[in-house]
Design a protein around this nucleic acid. Structure first.
Length: 216
DNA sequence: ACCCAGGTGTTTC
DNA sequence: GAAACACATGGG
């Protein structure tokens, strides 16, 4: 199966308009950290609480007490780590970019990526998520979900992050809109059907996936 | 009671 | 270098 074909099938099945809702690029940055190894429902609640307290700015989050932030972040799990990571990001933006995320996101893709990766707690996946969804950079997020789907459909057989990312970016002509849409579609498929334990019953891929109708 | 979630950093062989 | 492990709450 080809990647383009998968894209078209998923695009006909899932609605991913406004898939990552936000009022600001900084909100996406914080969400990208909160969602590490956590479902979006929990992230959404925490973001709402932060909004209610008007905390979604680098200056405010850099200034808040560590314990208070941990209490707010708790429902997302790994809350001590995540509170620390969010404050590292906030302080970084305040110290180096006058609290203006756009100044970081406006740099060249690879420059901005290096800066993000230098912040402890932001790895490749989180950095690329921020670049793609907050900065509109042509970077594909090669999440574990993605390699799982690609392997089961025979599209690309490698777990290596860099190789997987390169493959998709080449296929999609480095178009940020298409890369973001593809990622959203893949995550929707993964969440709905293509889990670790697949739910093949109503999966739109049907026989094109090696797991379809395979006995558990 | 167990498994998994829109990962990352550290430790260990 | 690649496994194995710690980090943690919430939902099925």
């Amino acid at each position: 199966m080809e990647l383009q074909q998968l894209y078209e099938i998923l695009d006909g099945v899932f609605d991913v308009e406004n898939w990552w809702p936000s009022d600001s690029s900084f909100e996406i940055m914080v969400g990208a950290i909160l969602t590490q190894q956590t479902s979006w429902e929990n992230v959404s609640k925490v973001i709402d609480v932060m909004k209610g307290k008007d905390l979604l700015s680098p200056v405010r989050l850099a200034g808040i007490g560590k314990e208070e932030l941990e209490r707010i972040v708790r429902p997302c799990g790994f809350y001590r780590q995540k509170a620390e990571r969010i404050q590292r990001l906030a302080r970084f933006l305040v110290d180096k970019y006058q609290g203006a995320p756009e100044k970081l996101l406006g740099k060249d893709t690879e420059d901005a990526r290096k800066e993000l990766l230098s912040i402890k707690g932001i790895g490749k996946e989180t950095a690329d998520t921020i670049l793609l969804f907050a900065g509109n950079h042509p970077k594909f997020v090669a999440a574990a979900y993605v390699s799982r789907i690609f392997r089961r459909t025979g599209i690309f057989d490698s777990d290596d992050y860099d190789r997987l990312q390169q493959f998709v970016e080449d296929e999609f002509s480095r178009s940020p809109e298409k890369l973001a849409r593809l990622y959203a579609l893949l995550i929707q498929l993964a969440k709905t059907y293509c889990k670790v334990k697949p739910l093949c019953g109503r999966c739109p891929l049907r026989n094109r996936c090696s797991y379809h109708l395979q006995k558990k």
